Simulated scan of single mutants.
Amino acid sequence: MMNYNIPSLADFKAYLEINDSSKRDSKIDIGLMDVRKHGTLENFLECEDLFVELLLNYPTTLPAELALPEVIYTVLSH
């Protein structure tokens, strides 16, 4: 079985610090896809509060519209 590098809460917080919105959104999108496809419930639960924060703060301060569908899909799939 392959060992996937699932983003941690610290990884997602670092992604949010990226100033370039397209790079930030891309990193978040890829991270969300990795959590959804290869992560365990434990991976999801570690980041759950951040995912909810992304939803609640959209679109004001946290990622732009490219990331929102991935956040919603990730939250609903767990």
Rank of each mutant, 00 (worst) to 15 (best):
M1Y: 13
M1K: 13
M2F: 15
M2G: 06
Y4Q: 14
Y4S: 14
N5S: 15
P7V: 10
S8C: 06
S8H: 08
L9F: 13
D11H: 12
D11Q: 10
K13L: 13
A14Y: 00
A14D: 05
Y15S: 06
L16W: 03
I18C: 02
I18T: 13
N19W: 09
S21C: 07
S22D: 12
K23T: 12
K23Y: 01
K23A: 15
R24P: 00
D25G: 15
S26Y: 10
S26R: 14
S26L: 11
K27M: 14
I28C: 13
D29T: 06
I30L: 06
G31H: 06
L32E: 06
L32I: 06
L32F: 09
M33S: 10
V35K: 01
G39R: 01
G39D: 03
G39A: 02
G39F: 02
L41S: 07
E42R: 11
E42H: 10
E46C: 06
C47N: 13
E48L: 02
D49V: 04
F51I: 04
F51L: 15
V52K: 07
E53K: 12
E53F: 01
L54R: 01
L55K: 09
L56T: 08
L56Q: 11
N57H: 08
Y58F: 15
T60D: 11
T60Y: 11
T61L: 03
P63M: 03
A64L: 04
E65M: 02
L68C: 00
P69V: 04
P69R: 04
I72L: 11
I72S: 02
Y73V: 03
T74L: 14
V75L: 15
V75S: 00
L76Y: 05
L76S: 07
S77F: 07
S77H: 05
H78E: 03
